[in-house]
């Protein structure tokens, strides 16, 4: 039986960008408010899972040519090197700092080095979740 899937594919093309924008928002929200790298990575993997549901595996592999195992390893490397940065400046492992800079168009912005560690956590969560999904979710 040939199923009609134009509704789910058209909906996915809009909803995907809403979910990705929300994941980026919740990633930057995580320093003072609920959020952070872990839940932002889970939202990004939810968006890519929706893309996998609406289209098939080969199409998603063509538009996202990323090996997710390498993404996991590079995220772990980023997180570890950010932790090592505390040792370079004479502090304990994983110590972090912050400062206030003046950016054009945004005004006074607080930048923290914990954001770089969170970026590593984000990559690890996206890579491991999508590796698990493509291993146990695909049919043969």
């Amino acid at each position: 039986m040939k199923l009609n899937d134009i509704v789910i594919q058209t909906t996915t093309k809009f909803v995907l960008f809403i979910i990705l924008a929300f994941s980026i928002f919740i990633f930057f929200n995580g320093h003072h408010h609920p959020g952070g790298g872990f839940i932002g990575g889970l939202m990004t993997s939810a968006a890519i899972t929706l893309l996998l549901l609406a289209f098939d595996f080969e199409t998603v592999k063509r538009i996202l040519p990323i090996d997710f195992k390498i993404l996991t390893a590079s995220g772990m490397l980023i997180a570890t090197l950010t932790g090592m940065g505390g040792l370079v400046f004479g502090g304990p492992f994983l110590s972090h700092t912050f400062g206030y800079v003046h950016l054009p168009f945004f005004g006074e912005v607080e930048l923290a080095t914990a954001l770089l560690f969170d970026l590593g956590v984000y990559f690890v969560v996206v890579g491991s979740a999508l590796t698990i999904i493509e291993m146990i979710g695909g049919d043969q």
Partner: peptide, 17 residues
């Protein structure tokens, strides 16, 4: 969406459509 696709098609993520 994933439960509905599993009920109608039997698979959740297809290899090649």
């Amino acid at each position: 969406v994933s439960f509905s696709k599993f009920i109608t098609k039997g698979v959740v993520i297809e290899r090649k459509r």
